[in-house]
Amino acid sequence: MSQNTVAGIILAGGRSRRMGQDKAALDFEGVTMLTRIAATVSQRCAPVLVAAPETSQAYRELSKESDLEWVTDEKEGSGPLGGLVAALRAAAEVGADAAFVCATDMPLIEVGLIDELVAGLTDSTDAVIARDAQRDHPMAGVYRTSAVGALEALVDAGELRMGAAIDAIHTRRVTVSDENWLTNVDAPEDLHRLRATGVS
Rank of each mutant, 00 (worst) to 15 (best):
M1P: 12
G8S: 02
G14M: 00
M19N: 02
D22R: 05
M33S: 09
V41T: 06
Q43A: 15
R44S: 13
E54R: 06
T55H: 05
S56C: 01
E65D: 13
L68D: 14
E69M: 09
K75M: 14
E76P: 14
P80H: 02
A87Q: 07
A92Q: 13
D97C: 01
A98Y: 11
C102E: 06
A103Y: 10
M106R: 14
I114H: 02
D115E: 13
A119Y: 05
L121S: 10
T122A: 14
D123V: 15
S124Y: 04
D126V: 03
A130N: 13
D132C: 08
A133S: 14
H137E: 08
G141K: 01
R144V: 07
R144G: 10
A147L: 08
A147K: 01
V148W: 09
G149W: 09
L154V: 11
V155S: 01
V155A: 06
A157W: 05
E159D: 10
L160M: 09
M162H: 00
A164T: 05
D167L: 07
A168F: 00
R172F: 02
V174L: 14
D186C: 13
P188K: 09
R193Y: 07
L194S: 07
L194Y: 05
R195V: 06
T197W: 10
T197Q: 11
G198M: 10
V199G: 00
S200D: 12
